[in-house]
C-alpha cells in the first residue's frame, strides 16, 4: 500500500517535513528495518499524535525528527533546513524520569537559559512556573514532587527555551488515569496560550483523539504510515459527543488494520 505525501491543511505553513524517511538498524551484522518510507508534512502550530503498537518505532521516529538519530535514507527538514543534530529549537519531553533530580524546579526550568542575562532568566522562569501552575514550588526538588508535577516541570523546562517544535514521547504514560486527564487539559491550555507545533507519541487511543488535530497511525515494525485521521472537533472536546465516539471508533478500526502485516 503506497503512502502519499499528504497536503497540509489548507493555507498553513509547513513546519516539519519528512520525505521518504527510512531507518535501518545494524545489530550485529543483521539489519533490522524499523521505519519504512515515512512521508509526513506537519504545519506550523499543529498538534500531531503518532499512535501505533508497542515497539513499532514511534520513539525512533521521534528521535529522528529531533536530530538524535540520522535516517538511513530520506530527509527530515524543518523550516526548509535539514535536521542534522539536536537543537534547542526542538525539544524532546520524555516520561518523568527526564527531570534533573539535583536541580530545584527553578534550576530545571532555567537549565537551557544560561545565555540570557540574569534578569531575563528570572523573568522567564517566573513566567513558565506560572504557566504550568507550579507557583510555590520554586525551590522544591523533584523528589518531593508528584508525577504530574514532574511532567509539568519538564514541559516548563522545554518551553522556557522557546522552541519551535515540542516532541513528547508518551509523557503521561507513567501517570495514573485521573492525573492523565488533568495533564491533557493542562497541555491543551498551554498549547492554546503559546501555540507551537507539537508531535505527541502515545499508544492511548483516547488520548490521541482528545488532543490531536491529526492522528498518524503507524503499522507494526517496519513502521509505515497506515493512515492519517483528521480530528475535526473544536476544543474543548466533549468526550461523550457522537462525533468524538465516531472518530474514536474509526481510529480503533484503523489500528486494527495496523496490527496485521
Amino acid at each position: 500500500m503506497a503512502t502519499e505525501t499528504l497536503k497540509t491543511p489548507s493555507g498553513l505553513r509547513s513546519k516539519l517535513r519528512m520525505e521518504h524517511v527510512s531507518k535501518v538498524f545494524d545489530r550485529d551484522g543483521k539489519s533490522v528495518p524499523v521505519l519504512d518510507d515515512i512521508n509526513l508534512d506537519v504545519s506550523e502550530g499543529e498538534f500531531i499524535c503518532l499512535v501505533g503498537p508497542s515497539g513499532c518505532g514511534k520513539s525512533t521516529l521521534l528521535n529522528l525528527t529531533g536530530g538524535f538519530l540520522a535516517p538511513t535514507s530520506g530527509s527530515v527538514t524543518i523550516d526548509g533546513q535539514g535536521v542534522h543534530g539536536p537543537d534547542p529549537r526542538r525539544i524532546l519531553v520524555f516520561q518523568e524520569r527526564g527531570v534533573f533530580p539535583w536541580l530545584t524546579v527553578e534550576g530545571n526550568i532555567g537549565f537551557g537559559l544560561s545565555k540570557l542575562s540574569r534578569v531575563e532568566r528570572e523573568q522567564r522562569i517566573a513566567h513558565y512556573i506560572q504557566m504550568v501552575r507550579l507557583q510555590g514550588f520554586e525551590h522544591t526538588y523533584p523528589s518531593d514532587l508528584s508525577g504530574g508535577m514532574k511532567q509539568r516541570l519538564q514541559v516548563a523546562r522545554a518551553l522556557a527555551v522557546n522552541p519551535d517544535i515540542l516532541f513528547l514521547d508518551e509523557p503521561f504514560g507513567a501517570l495514573d488515569s485521573v492525573t492523565r486527564l488533568i495533564m491533557r487539559g493542562e497541555l491543551l491550555r498551554i498549547w492554546q496560550t503559546e501555540r507551537r507545533t507539537i508531535i505527541f507519541v502515545t499508544h492511548d487511543i483516547d488520548e490521541a483523539v482528545q488532543l490531536a488535530d491529526r492522528v498518524v497511525v503507524l503499522s507494526s515494525r517496519p513502521a509505515k504510515i497506515e493512515d492519517i485521521l483528521t480530528i475535526d472537533i473544536a476544543h474543548p472536546r466533549n468526550i461523550s459527543s457522537p462525533r468524538y465516539l465516531e472518530l474514536r471508533d474509526e481510529l480503533l478500526r484503523k489500528i486494527g488494520l495496523a496490527y496485521t502485516v
Binding site: 529531533g66 538524535f68 543534530g85 539536536p86 537543537d87 534547542p88 525539544i91 524532546l92 520524555f94 524520569r97 527526564g98 534533573f100 533530580p101 539535583w102 536541580l103 537549565f111 537551557g112 527555551v161
Partner: peptide, 28 residues
C-alpha cells in the same frame, strides 16, 4: 541515564558543558 545526556544535547550544551552540568551532578 542516557535520557539526561540527551536532554543536555537537546538544550544545545557543548560536550564539556554536558560533562560538568549534567553527568557530574548525576554521578555525584
Amino acid at each position: 541515564p542516557a535520557i539526561f545526556r540527551r536532554a543536555g544535547r537537546n538544550f544545545g550544551l557543548s560536550p564539556a558543558q554536558i560533562l560538568t552540568r549534567v553527568v557530574f551532578p548525576a554521578a555525584l
